[in-house]
Amino acid sequence: MLKPPIFLLLLLTSFVGCNTTDDSPQKALVSINFSHSFNQQTLNSNNFNALQYTNAFGTTLSFSKLRYLISEISFTNQQGIKTLVKDYQLVDLGEDTGLFIDDILLPEGTYLLSMRFGFTEITNTSNVYPDLNAASWNVPEMLGGGYHYMQMEGRFLDLNNEEFIYAYHTISAVQNPGPENTREDTSIALNLGEITISQDQTQINVTMDIDQWFENPNLWDLNTLNGMLMGNYTAQKMMQENGQTVFSLDTSMGN
């Protein structure tokens, strides 16, 4: 029987002796960070509930909840090969959960980063995601079923300068809420642009510019649109339009 050191030496030699010629690029461990701002001001759970933000309509508002769903998080390389790194992610800014997607292993190179706000019509199927069910992220069947895309809530100063509440919830737009409703996919494809992954470039920051939800192209008046928005088809379509410019790739990335 071989003594252990000799056995280990042989084992090591057998590995070293293998043909290791590999032209594939080095891999880098990448993470995606979701950050949030309002008119260039950073928003995080520490400045929740502060009535210090002013939207394009001129309304002062605060945030007490911000949860949203991102799906189809993918990198497409220059050969057009798409790598799906995560099916979906529930980001909860108030609870500081879901803010990162870590341990993405990718070959160095240049990619297009894409994801989706919400679920597509096919993936937005009721009851199929246990973690989202437990998070009470569902949409009742009479409102089209499936799952929320976003729950953004807080307070604002109304026209009488008194505090009032808002619940800006986005879902698949639904017509005829009730048993005979028809649902329309209002998720948003996010093509965030090109990014080069290398050993020196491993953190990707995706920013939600929250002010855009209230501004572009639809000027949002919280005095009239502050609640009961889930079954409001027109409001959902406006939210989808405004959401087109909400997410961006922060190019000041680092490692």
């Binding site: 009721s126 069910n133 009470s136 569902n138 009742p140 009479m142 409102l143 009961m228 079954g231």
Partner: peptide
């Protein structure tokens, strides 16, 4: 139906649903 109706009970946001 009342429980799940945003314009009536609107109970589901805090108190679960047939899915939770």
């Amino acid at each position: 139906a009342v429980f799940l109706d945003e314009n009536r009970g609107d109970c589901f946001h805090c108190h679960g649903s047939p899915s939770n």
